[in-house]
Simulated scan of single mutants.
Amino acid sequence: MEDLAGARICRMDAWPTWDLEEAGLTEPLITLIRPPLPKDYMEAVLNGEADITGMETESAVGAIRELEAGTKLVQNPELSHIMSLHFTSHKPNPQSPLVTAILNKGITEMRRSGEWYDIVSSALAEFNGLAPKG
C-alpha cells in the first residue's frame, strides 16, 4: 500500500475506515476526504479532487450510472474485497430471541425461494460489471 502514499481517498462521512486502517492507509500517509453522498465521491474523483474512492458495489453502480461515468472510471481489483455482515442482539434484551428468530426465518425463506441466490448473483454481476476490461 506504500504505492498509495500521498493519495486522496474518499470515504463517506458515516462509513467506517477499518479496512483502510488495516491496509496502513491512514493520515498522514493519505488524505481522507469524507463527502456525504456516493455521487459526491465519484464527482471528487472525476474532478481531480480525489484520487480514489471506496464504497459498496450498489452505491458505486448507482453513482456511476447517475453521472454517466462508466467509461471514465476503473475498478482496482487489488483493493476490492467482499465483506460479510453479522447481526447481533443484546442477550439481556427481552426482544432479542424474537428479533433473531425473525431474521433467521426471513433468511431461510429467501434461500428456499431462491431470492437469496438472485440477490447474490445480481450483486456479483454488478461487481463484475465494474471490473476493468481486457
Rank of each mutant, 00 (worst) to 15 (best):
Y117W: 07
T57P: 05
D40K: 03
S59T: 12
P35S: 11
L73W: 04
R112V: 06
A14T: 15
C10H: 01
E115L: 07
N76Q: 12
A23M: 13
E109A: 11
P77F: 02
A5L: 07
S84M: 08
W15C: 05
D19K: 13
D3V: 14
N104L: 07
K39L: 13
L20M: 11
I64Q: 04
E56F: 05
G54C: 09
E56P: 11
G70D: 00
L130T: 05
G134S: 03
M110C: 05
A131I: 03
L32P: 12
S122Q: 14
S84D: 03
V74S: 15
H86K: 12
L130H: 06
A7P: 06
Q95M: 13
T26G: 06
G48K: 09
L124G: 08
L32M: 12
S122D: 13
T100W: 01
R8N: 11
T26P: 10
S84N: 09
T57V: 15
P16K: 13
P35A: 11
M12I: 15
C10E: 05
E66K: 05
P28N: 07
A131P: 01
V74R: 15
R65S: 07
T26Y: 02
T57L: 09
T88P: 00
M110H: 04
R112L: 08
L130D: 08
V61H: 09
I52F: 06
R65V: 06
A123Y: 08
W18E: 14
D51Q: 04
A23V: 03
Y41C: 14
L4G: 00
M42Y: 05
G129R: 00
E43L: 04
A7F: 13
L73P: 10
R112A: 14
P36A: 15
E68N: 13
P77E: 04
G129A: 00
M55N: 15
G134H: 05
E27K: 01
A14V: 14
A123G: 06
E115Q: 07
H81R: 11
M1R: 14
R34W: 00
L124H: 10
A23D: 14
Y117C: 06
E109M: 09
V99C: 04
I9E: 01
A23W: 14
V120Y: 06
H81P: 03
E22Q: 14
M1F: 09
T31N: 13
W116L: 00
T53Q: 04
T17W: 07
L98N: 10
N47K: 15
M83Q: 14
E22G: 08
G24H: 02
A23L: 13
T108E: 11
E21R: 15
S80L: 02
K105D: 02
I33Y: 09
P16Y: 07
D3A: 15
K72Y: 08
F87V: 10
L37S: 08
M110Y: 07
P132G: 12
H90L: 12
I102P: 00
H90G: 05
K133L: 04
P38A: 00
M110L: 11
K91V: 12
H81I: 08
F127E: 10
E109T: 07
K72V: 02
S121W: 01
L67V: 01
I82L: 09
S80G: 01
P132M: 06
M83G: 08
A131S: 05
I107T: 06
P16H: 13
E56L: 04
E115C: 02
K39R: 14
P38F: 00
E109D: 13
E27G: 02
L130V: 02
